[in-house]
């Protein structure tokens, strides 16, 4: 149907616009959500492997403690904290509060700082006590 027509002109997309806070918050919220979905496969792997036998669990543990696994887990933690903080902002906005541009600028700054701080302190504690 549409394939017989020449492609329709599209409006400019991401690469054209100057990055703004509300846009960055929204895009990162979605990207971190999809990333978390993929990363949660590791949790399923862990649970199913632990329920199967010791050998399967060891296979999971070897991956989780390898540098690739550690990078995945670090990324998962960062995405989790960001999605959590940004999600709380969404819940606040649902009440009608914090929807102005200055409030968004401030909230966005807080969200980025808090999620980075939580990620680093989580991994700091983990590496310190491990």
């Amino acid at each position: 149907m549409a394939s017989s027509l020449p492609p329709r002109p599209l409006s400019p997309h991401l690469q054209i616009w100057r990055w703004t806070m509300n846009m960055a918050l929204s895009i990162f919220h979605r990207v971190s959500g999809v990333g978390l979905s993929v990363g949660t496969l590791m949790l399923v792997w862990m649970l199913v492997a632990a329920a199967t036998d010791e050998e399967s669990y060891k296979c999971f543990l070897d991956f989780a403690t390898s540098w690739v696994g550690q990078v995945c887990l670090f990324g998962w933690t960062a995405a989790l904290y960001y999605h959590l903080c940004s999600g709380v902002r969404h819940l606040i906005m649902d009440t009608g509060a914090m929807i102005t541009i200055p409030a968004t600028q401030k909230a966005g700054f807080v969200i980025f700082v808090v999620s980075i701080a939580l990620t680093l302190s989580t991994w700091g504690c983990l590496k310190y006590f491990y």
Binding site: T40, L41, V44, L47, V48, A50, A51
Partner: peptide, 13 residues
């Protein structure tokens, strides 16, 4: 399916 597999595993453990 993933949720069910996880819940079953938790219960089995």
């Amino acid at each position: 399916a993933l949720a069910l597999a996880s819940i079953f595993s938790v219960l089995k453990i």
